[in-house]
Simulated assay, not measured.
Amino acid sequence: MTAPAPLAVLDACYRTHVGAGAPYALVDFPDHANVGDSAIWLGELAMLRHITGCGPVYVSTWHDFDADAFRRACPSGTLFLHGGGNLGDIWPHHQHFREHLLATVRDRPVVQLPQSIHFRDPARAGRFAALAAEHPDFTLYVRDARSHAFATARIACPVDLVPDSAIALGAQPRGAAEVALLMLLRSDDERRDHGGAPAAPARVVDWLDDDPDLPAGTGVAAREAQAQARVARGLRLLAQGEVIVTDRLHGHILADLLGIPHVVLDNDYGKIAAYAAAWPAATPVATAATMAEAHVLAERLRDAG
């Protein structure tokens, strides 16, 4: 029996919680320049709009959530928590917000959209596990087998394995490349030492700086415009390369949506390899352990193309 396509798996996940016309809130908007989180948020919005026919009645970041405004706007609908890779102790603001909501929003379904789980200190998982188990209607979605194994062993709530919501953006148009090799490499807390620096003549970039004309505002329309601007910037950046090397998960996912062959180097806890093992890419992709190997594999991909 053929396994369902990833997008069908994602669609079924969302339809478990909402239907046509259902009100919902979508919180933990990624109010930062990292393109990957905005790609996830736009994918979440696309899925929810497709199923319900409407946008969220309430959105917030982790730092501007207003419980009274949320309840006025969404007195009974499902509360969706933005997915990504911040379930754990690397990005504590998002985790603290998640735990606060589990402790205080107990009168409706709360759904954690697909996340990768990583606690550098496993003891810190205890508080989250306790809050999840105590919540009357909490569902946790994860996007790789390792996160699924951790959650099913430690967290007493419904858990399911589904792909990252950014795939709901679908195939993206790709223009002519500007350089033979583009390297999108992390410059944050998840970066791993890959045993050497990138070699010339690769163009090396990251995507943690917003354009100066980013739209302002905090409402649903403004947040959507901000996410669209960030994803458009990321797609333009990736489209520069004939072949890409990246250690960002959404460098991998968006390169796949663009149809650009690419080489993956992992982040510091193996998030990308774990995701790729669960949800294989449609475009040619190779996995490297070192920077030197990444250059060799990128050359092979370019020759094969």
Rank of each mutant, 00 (worst) to 15 (best):
R146T: 15
L258F: 01
D188Y: 05
H252Q: 08
P23Q: 09
D89E: 02
L254K: 04
V179A: 08
H82N: 01
S165D: 06
H295T: 12
L182P: 00
A304D: 12
P4D: 04
A221R: 08
A227Y: 01
L237C: 13
Q240T: 12
A222N: 09
V264Q: 11
R192H: 14
G259W: 06
N86H: 03
H63C: 10
F128Q: 03
P6T: 08
A168E: 02
Q228I: 10
C157A: 15
H82E: 05
D64E: 01
G126W: 08
G270Y: 03
F65W: 05
H94T: 13
T246V: 07
H262N: 13
P261M: 08
E99A: 05
Q115P: 08
A46L: 11
D213T: 06
V220I: 14
D256Y: 01
L238E: 03
Q226G: 00
A153P: 12
A221W: 05
V18I: 07
P158C: 05
T246E: 02
F128L: 13
L113H: 07
R248E: 09
L131W: 01
M291N: 14
F128K: 01
P280I: 10
V110P: 05
A133M: 03
D107C: 11
R98A: 10
R248M: 14
G259K: 11
T287V: 15
A199F: 12
V263M: 13
A232P: 00
A103S: 08
F29R: 03
M183G: 05
A129N: 01
I167L: 13
S147W: 00
P75D: 06
R223K: 13
A153C: 10
S165V: 05
Y14H: 09
L169N: 01
P56M: 03
L301A: 10
R230H: 00
A133S: 14
L182W: 04
G83M: 07
L184R: 03
A286G: 07
H135N: 07
D213F: 05
A304R: 08
A199R: 13
A294H: 02
P261T: 08
E190A: 00
D160T: 12
T218F: 11
Y275S: 15
D107V: 09
D210N: 00
D303Q: 15
A130D: 12
E99G: 05
A149F: 07
T104N: 14
L81A: 04
A274T: 04
A255D: 04
A103T: 06
R186N: 11
V264T: 08
D64F: 09
I51R: 06
E299C: 15
T61Q: 03
L185I: 03
G259S: 12
G196Y: 01
Q112R: 00
E224I: 15
G305D: 10
A69G: 15
D28K: 06
G55F: 04
L184Y: 15
F150K: 12
G175V: 09
